[in-house]
Each structure stands twice: as structure tokens, then as C-alpha cells.
């Protein structure tokens, strides 16, 4: 298992290298001089030269590339052009909020989606199945920012159960209250995906020969469902959860804006807004790294669920 993890991590290295290279190239092909952007239109020639020297953009491109890679590896991603603080610090400040929201949305989505999909598969074409399928279709087609606003109107403004904006204070209770609505917003969309995949995967597994074997052995149907069928049905679900992270990044941008919650999504939007190139560069690497990490976790989960994958 450890060998497998190491192998997978080594495979992630070329991916990350490719991402860094693309980020480097993108930053260089973009029109405009970073030094000019930082100093503004009125900057003197001397100041520009000094700034270029400070940024390293006066060096030959090969040298810049080598410096960029070396700095990236050492965690020196430059300073924000807006706040002047190191990019890593800026990202580190909001990352916990994003992780909180992402993890809780995934957990909520799985907690709703897996049982709902399983139940739906068991009662195929019964009334419940139709309701669940309709509900998940609704969840899939509903824009995240609309549902966010509806949740806010209902539970934060009308009922006043949850705060309207922010990520909560220092206490765990406050943080939990603040994260509830954003989590529900993202989790419901997630649940819609998971329900659909679980249902179809479960239907397929329930028709497998080994399920008939288990029934022929006299295994109680509850055990057949949870021990024999669900584990086999989970592989496509894990795949979808992994892929969903990409969608979650998009949806969390909107969710963070509507709920005025700090997080990666809000950071990247403000960086875009203010043309903060160094922060954008850093964020691209962070997102790429997150996707690589999620893929690794997904693969490890496969190995955990299916012994055939672990051995390969």
C-alpha cells in the first residue's frame, strides 16, 4: 500500500511540473509588463528597471524559468501586487475556510446521496424512485447562486437561524452556524450527482451473479445490500465525487460571494478583479495541486474498496 502511494505521488510530479510550466508561460505571454502594472503609468524609467530587476523579469527567459521552478518548489511564490504580502500567506489565510466548506459539502452530499440512490435503486420505478430522480434532476439543474440566495432569504433573513454573511467568529459553534447554509447549498448539488450515480451503479451491481450467489447462501437482504452490493457500487460514486471537486471549485466561487465568506473562490475573483498576477499564479498552482491530490485520494480509495485495483 505504501509503495502504491509513493508510486502515485511520483506520478504527480510530472503533472505539477507541467502545470507550473503552463503557468509560467501564461504569465509571460500575457500582454503588459508586470513592473509597469505594479508601478503604474507614471513610473520613471529608473524605477521600472529597478522593479524589473527586483522581479527578475530582466533576466534571460531560461534563467527566469529555472528561478521560477526553484522558487515554486521552495514555496516562494512572490508577493501579492495588491497587499504586498507573500502569496502563500494570502492563500494560507483563506485555505482553511475553503477546506471546511469543501469537505463538509462532500460529506453532506455523500450522506444524502448514497442512501437516497441506494433506496431509489431498491424501489426502482416506484413512486419514491421517481421523486428521488426528479429531485436530483432539480438539484443538478439549479444554479448554485440562485439556491444560495433562496437559502439566505428563507433561513437567514426570514427565520434568522443562520448569519447572513461571513464565516463566523472564533467559536466552533459560530463557525458551524456560518458554514451551514453554504454547505447545504453546495451539498445539495453534490447529493444530486451522488444520488444519480449511486442509483445506476447500484442497479447494475444488484443484477450481478455474486448477488444471486449471496442470496442463494441465505444471506439476509440487508447484509447483501450493505456488505455485498454497496462496496461494489461505490467505485463510480468515488469517481464522481472526485470529479465533482472541479465543479465545486466553480460553485464555491459563487457560494462564497453570495454568503460573503472568505475562501479560495473569493480570493481568486478579487485577484482577477485587481489584476494581481502573482496571486493568480499561486492560485493556479494551488488548484492544480488540489486536483492532483484529489485524484490521488480517489485512486487510493479505489484500492481500499476494490482489492483487484490495489494489486495492480
Amino acid at each position: 500500500m505504501i509503495g502504491y502511494i509513493v508510486k502515485r505521488l511520483l506520478l504527480a510530479v510530472p503533472t505539477l511540473w507541467a502545470v507550473l510550466t503552463i503557468v509560467f508561460v501564461l504569465a509571460r505571454v500575457l500582454p503588459g509588463d508586470p513592473a509597469q502594472t505594479i508601478l503604474g503609468d507614471q513610473a520613471t524609467q529608473e524605477a521600472l528597471v529597478a522593479m524589473r530587476h527586483r522581479l527578475g523579469t530582466d533576466k534571460p527567459i531560461a534563467e527566469q524559468y529555472a528561478d521560477f521552478l526553484a522558487n515554486a518548489v521552495r514555496g516562494r511564490w512572490g508577493d501579492s501586487l495588491v497587499t504586498g504580502k507573500p502569496v502563500l500567506e494570502e492563500v494560507g489565510k483563506v485555505l482553511p475556510y475553503s477546506i471546511d466548506l469543501t469537505v463538509s459539502a462532500i460529506v453532506l452530499g455523500a450522506l444524502i446521496g448514497v442512501p437516497l440512490g441506494t433506496w431509489s435503486a431498491l424501489h426502482r420505478n416506484a413512486a419514491f424512485d421517481y421523486i428521488a430522480r426528479l429531485g436530483s434532476l432539480l438539484g443538478l439543474s439549479f444554479p448554485a447562486f440562485v439556491s444560495a440566495i433562496m437559502l439566505l432569504l428563507a433561513f437567514a433573513i426570514e427565520l434568522r437561524w443562520f448569519p447572513v454573511i461571513g464565516a463566523g467568529g472564533s467559536g466552533p459553534w459560530e463557525r458551524l452556524r456560518a458554514i451551514t447554509l453554504p454547505t447545504v447549498n453546495l451539498g445539495i448539488i453534490m447529493a444530486a450527482y451522488v444520488t444519480r450515480v449511486t442509483r445506476s451503479s447500484m442497479l447494475e451491481v444488484l443484477g450481478e451473479d455474486y448477488i444471486r450467489t449471496a442470496r442463494a447462501k441465505g444471506v439476509p437482504s440487508r447484509v447483501i445490500l450493505w456488505r455485498h452490493a454497496l462496496r461494489n457500487a461505490l467505485i463510480p460514486v468515488v469517481t464522481v465525487v472526485g470529479l465533482y471537486l472541479g465543479i465545486l471549485i466553480g460553485n464555491s466561487v459563487l457560494t462564497e460571494i453570495v454568503f460573503n465568506r472568505s475562501g479560495l473562490g473569493k480570493l481568486i475573483v478579487s485577484a482577477l478583479d485587481q489584476r494581481d498576477y502573482t496571486v493568480l499564479q499561486g492560485m493556479m498552482v494551488v488548484y492544480a495541486f488540489a486536483i492532483v491530490l484529489v485524484n490521488l485520494l480517489t485512486d487510493l480509495t479505489y484500492g481500499f474498496i476494490d482489492p483487484r485495483i490495489k494489486r495492480q
Binding site: 450467489t213 449471496a214 442463494a216 441465505g218 444471506v219 461494489n232
Partner: peptide, 24 residues
């Protein structure tokens, strides 16, 4: 019937490759 199956009446199937649960 469940109490009978695998207990008093058992069955073996044609396809040994797919009749065992791959994850157990």
C-alpha cells in the same frame, strides 16, 4: 425461504468467474 437457502437447499452456478463477490 432465506432460512432454507444455503442451509437445506444450496445452489452452485455456471459462471465461477462472476459468481463470487470481488471485494470480499
Amino acid at each position: 425461504m432465506r432460512k432454507l437457502r444455503g442451509n437445506e437447499i444450496s445452489m452452485i452456478f455456471q459462471e465461477p468467474m462472476t459468481s463470487l463477490n470481488p471485494v470480499l
